[in-house]
Design a protein around this nucleic acid. Structure first.
Lengths: 203, 203
DNA sequence: TCGTGCCCATGACGTTTGTCATGAGCAGTG
DNA sequence: CACTGCTCATGACAAACGTCATGGGCACGA
C-alpha cells in the first residue's frame, strides 16, 4: 500500500485541525504539513514536498489558486487540489487553468475528501458535479479583457474619474467600456453589472 | 463529571463532520445532533434538547442568529453560540442582542472551542477579543432607520426610481436619504457607502 | 488584401445622481 | 410648552453617468 503525503492549507484553525484529525483516520493518508496562509503553504511545500496539496480557496496572502500556480512550477510532482465554501464558476475555471487537479466544495464528507485525495494522487482529476454544471451553465464571459478589467475597478463604487486614472484610460473610454459591459450583461448600470459578473465568476 | 450535550449546525459537511470528530475526543462533550441548515437545526434542537447549540453564522435558510433567536424562546435552557469565518462587527452585535452566549471565529483550535463550550455551559459568556475590539472601534451606526433601509435597497445597484418604489417613498426623499447616508459614512457615492456600511455591519 | 474585432479616444446629448434650501407633520425630552 | 430629531416632501442646479456616433490604430484569419 502506498501512503499519500498530504499538505493542508486553511486559515481556519478549527477546520484545518479537524480535517487533519479526520484524514489521519485513513491509514493510507498522512498529513505531513499544515499552513494557515498562502505564503506558509508554499514554504511548507518546499520543506516537506508532499504528494498532494489540499488548499483552501480563500486565505490571507496568496489565495489557493495562486499557491497552486507557484507549486506547479516549483514542485511539478505535487498535485494540487482546492477546497472551498463558495463555489463560484469563475474560480473553478481559474483553478483548472492553474493546473489544479480537483475542485471540491466543503459540503463533501471527510470520507469523500479522502477518496478524492486518492483519486488525485493516482493522477486523475475530480470536479464537483454541481460546480461543473454551474460553470457550464454560466458559460463563457461575453466581456472583453478590458471590459472585465474596468468593471473590476468599478467594483468598489469608485467614480469614473478614479477608474480612468487607475486604468490609465480616458474617462470617455471608461464610460464606453462600462456601458458596453452593462449592456452585454443586461444590467441597468455598472453597479448591477458588477454584481452580475461577480455572481457568474466573470470578474 | 457532567457531560455537555451539543448540537452542531454547519452547512459544510466537511467541517461539521470533522468538528464532531474532534469534539468527541473530549470526554465530557457529546454531540447529540447535527444539522446542515437553519431549519434543520431548529428541528434537531426540538428533538434532542441539547445543552449547547453551536451554530455556524452563514447557513442556507435561516442564519445562525435567526436560529438563536428562535431557540431563545423555544428552548430557554439551551445556550447558543455562533462560530463564523467572517467576523463582521454588526453580526456580533446582532448575535449578542439575540441572546447568543459566545461568538467565536473559526481560527480558534478545536481544543479552545471545547473550552468555550464548557464556559458557555457553565453560564458564562465568551467573545473573541479581536472581534470585540473591532466591534468597539466600529462603534454605533450613525444612520437612522430609514437611511439604513434605503441604503439596503440600494445594495444591488438599483436606480433611485426603483428604490423609491420599493420603499414607497418619493424619488427626492430617497436621494436625500442616500445623500445623507453617504456623507455620514464619508463615502463618495451611495455604492461606496453600501460597501462601507456592510463592512462595519451597519446594514 | 480585405474584413472583423478589440483597443482607445473624442464630442455631444439627455438622463440620473448628489447636494442644498426649505418646510410640514410628528414623536419624545427637558 | 419649546426644542430637538426623524420622517417625508418639493424644487432647483451642478456634476456625474449612460449612450451614441465617429474615427484611428492594430492584430488576426479568410
Amino acid at each position: 500500500m502506498t501512503t499519500v503525503r498530504v499538505l493542508l492549507a486553511d486559515d481556519e484553525h478549527l477546520i484545518r485541525g479537524a480535517l487533519a484529525a479526520l484524514l489521519a483516520l485513513e491509514d493510507d493518508l498522512v498529513v505531513v504539513a499544515e499552513a494557515a496562509t498562502g505564503r506558509e503553504a508554499l514554504a511548507m511545500a518546499r520543506a516537506h514536498r508532499p504528494d498532494v496539496a489540499v488548499l483552501d480557496l480563500e486565505m490571507p496572502g496568496a489565495d489557493g489558486v495562486n499557491v497552486a500556480t507557484s507549486l506547479r512550477t516549483e514542485l511539478p510532482g505535487c498535485r494540487t487540489m482546492i477546497v472551498t465554501s463558495h463555489g463560484r464558476p469563475g474560480h473553478l475555471k481559474r483553478a483548472l487553468a492553474a493546473g489544479v487537479r480537483a475542485f471540491v466544495p466543503k459540503t463533501v464528507s471527510a470520507r469523500q475528501l479522502a477518496g478524492i485525495i486518492r483519486t488525485v494522487h493516482a493522477g486523475n482529476r475530480y470536479v464537483d458535479p454541481e460546480l461543473a454544471a454551474d460553470a457550464i451553465s454560466a458559460g463563457d464571459s461575453p466581456l472583453t479583457t478590458r471590459e472585465a478589467e474596468v468593471l473590476e475597478l468599478a467594483a468598489d463604487g469608485a467614480p469614473v474619474a478614479e477608474i480612468a486614472e487607475r486604468a490609465s484610460l480616458s474617462q470617455g473610454t471608461v464610460r464606453n467600456y462600462l456601458s458596453a459591459a452593462a449592456s452585454k450583461l443586461g444590467a441597468e448600470n455598472r453597479h448591477a453589472a458588477v454584481r452580475l459578473a461577480r455572481e457568474r465568476g466573470w470578474v
